[in-house]
Every structure is written in structure tokens, then in C-alpha cells.
Design a protein around this nucleic acid. Structure first.
Length: 478
RNA sequence: GGGGAUGUAGUCUAGCCUGGUCAGGAUUCAAGCUUUGGGAGCUUGAGGCCCCAGUUCAAAUCUGGGCAUCCUCACCA
């Protein structure tokens, strides 16, 4: 019993399935991913989490460079008048703007960016003159500030968060739309093949659309508590902003044309998704492809064999440099303590090496996601690690995918819909797409539409109001 | 913005109702000895009443305000 109590102090004191919200907080704090800042809604992203973000940045920077997108940086503060140029944009963001106190009389009010469309497009208008200036593709990694009133949650909903926002300008609508979808597809690749989180892609309904966009495309993931999480969005802005910011160019036809624009982004909330989707009662499970340190070597030290074991461990560590391996050779902690600690922090693989293993010229390889232990020959270590990392990614993705599939249900009637939402499911149903009807659904069930999934030709009568409709995905959302 | 709960070392907690001994314990942290194949043991030491007012001879305890966290509704990445 005393042992159990201790375990509870150091590790997680609640189970994921018992108290999801509390479990999430404990994982974040105890695995040292983040900490609360001194002001409500602000968080400190600690190295354990920030290195995941950096890895995601590296991966995505590669992708966009290939797509001829350049990184840049625009100002943090935005003049009041900029927001007011696009009516629905200002309406969408006005409530959560943080205004800066004026330093001098008569100065224009400025706010901290909640998103950078306006400040970037002001520059774009100056830079774009001819069809030869297009396409213009710029991305920025930055922080944004949205003064959420309440309900903040580490990573998932903080007032300040980090993200990337890509803003591109095109000559033709087709190009603009094609690339908006292309970037969405790159997002899907990132989520599924690196973060091991399956997503459903589709278009947002009018009600859920980005303020100022013509179309919004989204990637939706399902969290273990039945809530959907928007992993990223890509917007076809049409000419809404080019009209108001006067982004126009002289075409090949010698006539003045308004440009076509898209924008796309994902944020540090992805880290929250990783924690929720993959984490377990031992802590976070870091997807191997974004783990900086893919393996920890824990030597089992006994007085008699200590030197031999350590020497071999160091030799292994040299050999495994490409996995950013490291040895936990602290002598003041027992092996069991170390096992628990690295499991809490989610290192994908653990290599145990003790005197008994040395005799057999082997070591024990343990997979974090499944706990599976395997004795492997020292000569095969690299090969086996490579193999295990691939397996782990696959297993993590399949597990999440299985959960997603099992938790999407079809609703053919309003009653079925209510039952499914109450049962914490994602619901597929026919809906008329009208904002009013959606509003009513939200008011009665708190569920909102997540997207109109791509490639679904299903049509029929809206389960709520009976009008003609299309297949739409609903869920409670983060 | 609405409703509810909570706030005692890094973490968990006793004390609060009924004001009054140096705020008790566990863990953590530091030093030492001893140990290490799933969170070992002993010794010594360090660290705390969320903040600001008020009531009172006296406040962790009572009152008011602020701040923060959690749950929930509204809003949103």
C-alpha cells in the first residue's frame, strides 16, 4: 500500500478513463510539457513540449519550401482601421482583441494580432503590381493573442498561442483553390504520417467558416472524450480581402484585376491533441517521428558489474547517436524509478542493459506505446530499433484510427442524433447547411457541425428541419 | 459573460465549523551512508497558510474585495 501511495505522488493520480480533464492536466504538468503563466490563459511551453513544436516546424518548413513558400515576419500590432476594412472579419475578431494603451494623444488605436490577414495584406497591396508578381506565397511562424473570456486549457485554449499562418496570392481563382486544398493535404500528411493522428477532411459550413473567407477547409480529429478538435484549417478567401485591401494587378490582358487569396494555419494546440490521443495512464506517448530523443538507455547497475555494464552502455550510445539516444546513468535512482520517469515523459523506446544481458550478449528493448519487451542481440540493435520505431508509429496510428472509426455513428433521425451526441460520438447525418438550423442544433445539444466531408455525394432530408441537405459531420468541439 | 466548486512548501494533504501552543504529516529537494532487473532504506537539513484590506488583544481559521485553478454553459484555433 505504501508503495502504491508513492507511485501516486510521483506519477499520475487519476486514470485517463476516470477523469479525462484532470488526467490531461497532470500529464502536461508532470511530464513537464508546460506550466501555467502568471496571467490567466497564458502558458509556459517547457523544453519537453517545445522540442516537439520545433520538430513540427522543421518538418513543415521542408514541405512549404518545396511548394515555394517563403517564411517572413510581420508586425505584432495592427491598427484599428485595418480590422474595420473587412466587415465579417472585424465582427469575428472584435470581441477578443487586446488593445494597446495609447502613448500619445490622437494616436490610432492598435491591437495585438489575433491573426495577420490585415497587416500582411496591407503590405501585399504595395508589393503586387503585375501578374509577374504572382503567385506570392508567404508563411510566418508567430504568436497570436485572442482574449478568450474563460475556459482556458493548456495547449488547447490559451489566450496567446504559437502557430504558422500561410498567406498566398494568385492570379486565378482555380490556382488559389487548388493550392488551398493542396496545403490542406499537406496538413493531413503531417497529422497522420508524423503525429499518428487520423483526421477527417472536409469543408466548413457557412456558420463555422472563418470570418472573411469564401470557403474554409478543415481537418478534424476526435479526442478520447468524444470531442472533436480542429487540427488545422485552410481558407479560400476568394477576393474578399483583395477587394478591401486593394490587392490588384495588371494582367497579361493589360487590365486591372483583383487577386485571389488563400490562407492556412495550424497551432500549438496540435501538441494538446498528441497528448490526448496517444497519452495513457503512465504519461505522454510521443509519436516516434517527432520525438527528438527516440531511445533512452537504462543500465542496470550492480556494484560488481557496474563498470562493465556502463562501458557497454556507452558503446551502445555511441552506436545509436542517430536516434539521439542518451544514457540515464544516475546512480541515486533505481532502475524502476527511471523506467517510470521516462514512460511519463513518453520516450518511444527504452533499452535495458544489465549483467544478465551482457552474459547473453543481448539487451531488452521496450516499446513505450505497448509496453512490449523484447530481448535482442546486441549486433542487431540498430536494425531492431529502426523496426520498432516504425512499428510504434503504425500501432499508434491504427489504434487512433480504430477509435475514430468506432466513434463515428450515422444518425438517420433527430432522436438518433441526440442519442449519439449524448453517447459522446461524432455523428454523420444529413443536414440542410443553414446557419439557423445549425444554431438550433447547437442550442439543444451543444454539438456543432465539424465539416462537410469531402467525397460524399449522399443527399437527403435534413434530420432537424427536413429540408434538402448533404452529409455533415457533427460533434461537440474543443 | 452566466452558474457551481476550490485555494495551506515543487506535489498531495491535516488543521478552518468553535480564532489563541514553534501550522502536523507524506512526497520532493540538498548532503551523507547504503542500494539499483518496475517508483528501495536510514540520518541530517531546506521549503508553506494565494494577494490586499477589515474585525480582533490575537486570523490559516471570521468578513469584504481581488487574483488564480477546476467543472459547466455561451464564444472561439
Amino acid at each position: 500500500m505504501a508503495e502504491k501511495e508513492k507511485e501516486q505522488m510521483l506519477g499520475l493520480t487519476v486514470k485517463k478513463e476516470d477523469d479525462f480533464s484532470e488526467w490531461y492536466n497532470q500529464v502536461v504538468l508532470k511530464a513537464q510539457l508546460a506550466d501555467f503563466g502568471p496571467i490567466k490563459g497564458f502558458m509556459v511551453i517547457r523544453p519537453n513540449a517545445f522540442q516537439l513544436w520545433e520538430k513540427i516546424q522543421n518538418i513543415f518548413n521542408e514541405v512549404i519550401q518545396e511548394k515555394k513558400v517563403k517564411n517572413a515576419y510581420f508586425p505584432l500590432l495592427i491598427p484599428k482601421s485595418f480590422f474595420e476594412k473587412e466587415a465579417s472579419h472585424v465582427e469575428g475578431f472584435a470581441p477578443e482583441l487586446a488593445w494597446i494603451e495609447n502613448k500619445e494623444e490622437g494616436e490610432e488605436k492598435v491591437a495585438i494580432r489575433p491573426t495577420s490577414e490585415t497587416i500582411m495584406y496591407d503590405s501585399y497591396a504595395k508589393w503586387i503590381r503585375s501578374w509577374r508578381d504572382l503567385p506570392l506565397r508567404i508563411n510566418q511562424w508567430c504568436n497570436v493573442l485572442r482574449w478568450e473570456v474563460k475556459q482556458t486549457k493548456l495547449f488547447l485554449r490559451t489566450r496567446e498561442f504559437l502557430w504558422q499562418e500561410g498567406h498566398c496570392v494568385y492570379e486565378t481563382e482555380k490556382e488559389c483553390l487548388d493550392e488551398a486544398l493542396m496545403f490542406l493535404n499537406e496538413y493531413k500528411n503531417l497529422m497522420e504520417n508524423y503525429l499518428a493522428i487520423p483526421v477527417i477532411t472536409g469543408e466548413k459550413t457557412e456558420k463555422e467558416r472563418f470570418p472573411g473567407a469564401k470557403q474554409t477547409f478543415t481537418l478534424e480529429a476526435l479526442m478520447p472524450d468524444g470531442k472533436a478538435l480542429q487540427m488545422g484549417t485552410s481558407h479560400n478567401l476568394g477576393q474578399n480581402f483583395s477587394k478591401t485591401f486593394k490587392i490588384s494587378f495588371l494582367g497579361k490582358d493589360k487590365k486591372e484585376h483583383l487577386a485571389w487569396q488563400n490562407s492556412w494555419g495550424f497551432s500549438t494546440r496540435l501538441l494538446g491533441a498528441i497528448i490526448m490521443v496517444h497519452g495513457d495512464n503512465k504519461g505522454i506517448v510521443v509519436p516516434p517521428k517527432i520525438a527528438r530523443e527516440k531511445i533512452v538507455i537504462v543500465p542496470i547497475l550492480f556494484e560488481a558489474s557496474k563498470e562493465k555494464v556502463l562501458m557497454k552502455a556507452k558503446e551502445l550510445n555511441e552506436k545509436l547517436k542517430k536516434f539521439n539516444s542518451f544514457i540515464d546513468e544516475r546512480e541515486e535512482y533505481s532502475a524502476g524509478f527511471k523506467f517510470n520517469e521516462w514512460e511519463l515523459k513518453g520516450i518511444p523506446l527504452r533499452l535495458e542493459l544489465g549483467p544478465k544481458d551482457l552474459e547473453k550478449n543481448q539487451c531488452i528493448l521496450v516499446k513505450r506505446n505497448s509496453g512490449e519487451k523484447k530481448a535482442i542481440k546486441l549486433n542487431d540493435v540498430e536494425k531492431e530499433i529502426e523496426k520498432a520505431l516504425n512499428e510504434i508509429h503504425k500501432e499508434m496510428f491504427l489504434k487512433a484510427e480504430k477509435f475514430l472509426k468506432e466513434n463515428i455513428v450515422k444518425a438517420n433521425s433527430w432522436n438518433e442524433f441526440i442519442k449519439a451526441i449524448e453517447g459522446k460520438k461524432m455523428v454523420e447525418c444529413i443536414h440542410c447547411l443553414s446557419p439557423e438550423c445549425e444554431e438550433e442544433i447547437k442550442n439543444t445539444t451543444t454539438a456543432s457541425s465539424r465539416c462537410i466531408p469531402f467525397n460524399s455525394k449522399e443527399k437527403g432530408k435534413c434530420i432537424k428541419c427536413g429540408k434538402e441537405g448533404k452529409k455533415v459531420l457533427f460533434a461537440k468541439a474543443y
